[in-house]
Design a protein around this nucleic acid. Structure first.
Lengths: 168, 168
DNA sequence: TTTCATTTTCAATATATCTTGAAAATTCAG
DNA sequence: CTGAATTTTCAAGATATATTGAAAATGAAA
């Protein structure tokens, strides 16, 4: 397979995977494009490569910066802004985990805590069952939170398989 | 907070969280409803509780069954089908991990394997960088796959914190 | 300050996804 | 087998989400 084809397929497929994970297709594609671009790109470069509008590129790049996955790069002598993606996949994964934890897991745990205390007789079957389910989900959320913290700290050790040291 | 309110809030919030994770809102709501329902429900029950159409309920329940999160229940003497959700949250989590691994992670690794071999001079800077990014993602995918397998096997031990034994 | 390249915003539009509801298929009691 | 209850399908419609593009804002050079 030729490099150009492979890049194109990676970008397209990455976009498709993104949608499965609740990520906007274009955002995933821009991220993929920047991942496989040796040099930083301008908004115009991205527009042309992906055939999308200026506004779309602008909004999604800003989102990606918000996720900590893309950085602005200053190139001396150039007026335009350039953008580049973190190439170290472990940093990328860590960053995504951190953000999703903050944006999704933390609010979920907060909600479940609120739902744990129900007015009424604690002996009531319905109340018991509800509370049990909610507490179960909350416990799992907390456990996931802890486990992900360890993974974040473990960083590349996760990858190298030496995560055991971190867990101890 | 009253039980009824709490159930309602759980159902609504679960639907909202679901969309963030790329899961259809209604499917998440039906799952939530079945999670907090003491007894199995019919399609009509779900239609009424969530104010949604028969077709919608039918399709989403079948999807949930496909995910292994909901089961058909036969109630003797009843013609209608009843549905119930697995209440053990650790089984639920395990099941979701298994399915997402199969549906998303495995295909991703397969794709990346195809993109690893690029025609041309291996010394070429562009080819090197591309291959490096792709291989990095693939390695991470494989590592995630292994780690999730351990979690699946660890089952409730994950939760209890005794996962270390399983990792050794 | 003025000018112009560049970035940002956002209402309008387009697209993708979900939902409905009625018809078709299925199932089962009689 | 017949007919009614129940489930399933799916085209049409509704809703939610993403994209465009032009106008407004920004900011750097002259």
């Amino acid at each position: 397979m030729k490099l150009i084809e492979a890049k194109q397929q990676f970008i397209n497929s990455w976009g498709a995977f993104g949608t499965q994970w609740g990520i906007n297709r274009t955002m995933a594609q821009i991220h993929a494009l920047l991942l496989v671009s040796t040099d930083p790109l301008t908004q115009d470069d991205v527009m042309e490569e992906l055939s999308i509008s200026r506004g779309n590129v602008n909004m999604n790049i800003r989102d990606l910066i918000g996720w900590g996955l893309v950085d602005r790069v200053i190139i001396s002598g150039e007026r335009k802004e350039y953008f580049t993606a973190e190439k170290d996949i472990w940093k990328v994964a860590t960053q995504i985990i951190k953000e999703r934890k903050k944006r999704e897991l933390d609010p979920m745990i907060k909600l479940l805590s609120q739902l744990e205390n129900i007015d009424g007789n604690k002996k009531d079957k319905d109340i018991q069952q509800f509370t049990q389910v909610i507490s179960g989900i909350k416990k799992m959320g907390i456990q996931a939170d802890k486990t992900l913290d360890i993974l974040i700290k473990a960083d590349e050790n996760w990858f190298t398989g030496s995560i055991l040291k971190m867990l101890k």
